[in-house]
Amino acid sequence: MDQGDAFYSAQPLVSVVIPAFNASAYIERTLRSAARQTYTALEIIVVNDGSTDDTAQLVEQIAMTDSRIRLVSTPNRGVAAARNTGIDASSGRFVAFLDADDLWHPTKIEKQVNALNRLSPRWAAVYVLHYIIDQDDEIIGLGGSKIARGYIYARHLNFKYIGNGSALLVRRDVAREIGGFDSSYAAAGIGGCEDVDFELRLAARYCMEVVPERLVGYRKYPGNMSSNYTRMAQGLLEVIKRSVAANPQLPRYAARSAIALTQKYAFRQYRKAGNLHLSIVTAWAIFQNPLFMLSFVRQAIRLVAKQRRAPEPGMANGMLNKSKFDEQIILAPVEGPEETLSSRRHLRRLTAVDARMSSIRESDEPVDFPSCEIATRPCDP
C-alpha cells in the first residue's frame, strides 16, 4: 500500500445521498460537482424517485466511469422518502445530502469532515453557506449570512440558518436515531420543507458546527420545488408548529417569535404566489402578535418599495455581478445587512434560551422532552 492508498483508507467514508425526480436537466452537473470533491472517500447514492424521464439512464452512464456512483430506483414517494432510502442504503460514517439540481464547491465535503472530526459525538452535524444560482449555474444572489454554532435549537427555529437541503453533513448514526426525514408532509401535499424539519429535530438534541463559507450553489428556477410559494409557506408553518409542540420546554417567547417570523415568511410567499386570501389571513394573524406587528409593517413597506425599484444593469438582487459557480469562485464569507438594535436584542435573548436549554441536565429542573438528555449537555469540543 503506497502513501496515497493509506491516506484514502484513513479517511472516514462519506455517503452522498442525491434524491432525483425527473432531474435529467441537471443531474449530470450535480453528479460532476459531487465526484470532483477534494475529499475522495465517497459513495454517491442517487435515489431515482420514480422518474419518468431519462434520469436513471443518465446516472447509469455516469456510474460506468466512476465506481463510487450507484443508482437505487424506487416508486415515486417524495424527497423525504428518497433521502431515507439513501440513508438506509449508505454505509458511511457521515451522510451528506445533495439535491439533484444543486452544486457543491470542490472543497465542501473536505472542510465539513475536517470541522466535525475534531469535535466530540455530541456535535452531530455541520452546515455551510450558499449562493443562489440560476439554470445556467450563474450566481444570482446570496443565501443568508447569519451563522451560529453549538446548541442552536431556539435560534435555528427562528432564523433557519441552514437554508437549503444541500448544505448539511451529518453523522449517519444520528440521522437514523432521529428517524430520518418525515414523509408525512408530502403525503399531506405540503412537501418542500422536510429538510428544515430534519434540521430542527437534529438541533433539538445535538450541537451543530458551521463552516462559514459559501460552498453550495442552491438552484432556483421556475418549476422547481422552492418556486411553489404557497406549498413552501404552508409546509414551513406546519414544520414550526410541530417542532414547537414537540419541545414543550421551549420558553414561550422563543416559540411565539418563531411562529411570528414564519408567518412573515409565509406572507411574503403568498404575495409572490398572488394569493390575496392567504396573504390577508396571514397578515391578520401577525397583527394579533403586538411583539412583531411593528416590524411586520416596516418590512411590508420595504417589500413594496423593493418591488417598485428596478435592479441595476448587470446586478443580481442588487448585490452581485453574474459569474459562474465553479472552482474559480472565491468563497470568502459575505456579510449580511447591518442588524438593527431590536434584532440584536432578539438574537441575544434566543442565545440565552439556547444556553439555558443546553444546561438543563446540569440543574434540577424537570425535562419534558424525552430525548433532551443529549441536547442538554454543554457543547464543548
Rank of each mutant, 00 (worst) to 15 (best):
L236P: 02
S15Q: 01
L303I: 10
G314R: 07
E60N: 01
L278K: 07
G223K: 00
M357D: 10
E43P: 03
C207Y: 14
R70K: 05
K160A: 11
V297L: 05
T52E: 03
Y185E: 01
L261C: 07
M293K: 14
L278R: 04
V367P: 04
K111F: 04
V14I: 04
S342Q: 08
L142S: 10
S145W: 08
Y265T: 12
I374E: 14
I259M: 02
W123D: 12
Y8S: 00
E365N: 10
A34F: 09
I374V: 11
E373C: 06
R171W: 04
I162P: 05
A258V: 02
T52G: 03
L103D: 08
I132T: 07
R345S: 13
P251F: 09
G143P: 01
S358F: 10
A305L: 13
I44M: 04
Q263L: 14
A187N: 02
N114G: 06
N247D: 09
S67E: 07
K111D: 03
G143D: 02
H156W: 08
L291K: 15
F21P: 00
G217C: 02
F267D: 01
S343A: 10
R68Y: 06
T262G: 03
L119P: 00
Q3A: 12
Y229C: 05
D101Y: 03
I178E: 06
A300Q: 06
T65M: 04
W123S: 08
C193L: 02
A20M: 00
G314W: 07
R298W: 13
Y206I: 12
A167K: 01
E177M: 10
H156G: 11
I45L: 09
E335C: 06
R83E: 07
P311D: 13
P248G: 08
P381S: 12
Y39G: 01
M357V: 11
P381D: 10
Q234H: 05
M357Y: 12
R29L: 06
I18L: 04
R344P: 10
E238M: 00
Y265S: 08
F198Q: 13
I62H: 00
E138L: 11
V196I: 13
Q11P: 01
L294D: 11
A332D: 12
K264I: 13
S51D: 00
R344E: 14
I133F: 02
Y185D: 04
D380I: 10
N275D: 15
R344L: 14
Y218W: 09
T340K: 07
V281Y: 00
L98Y: 07
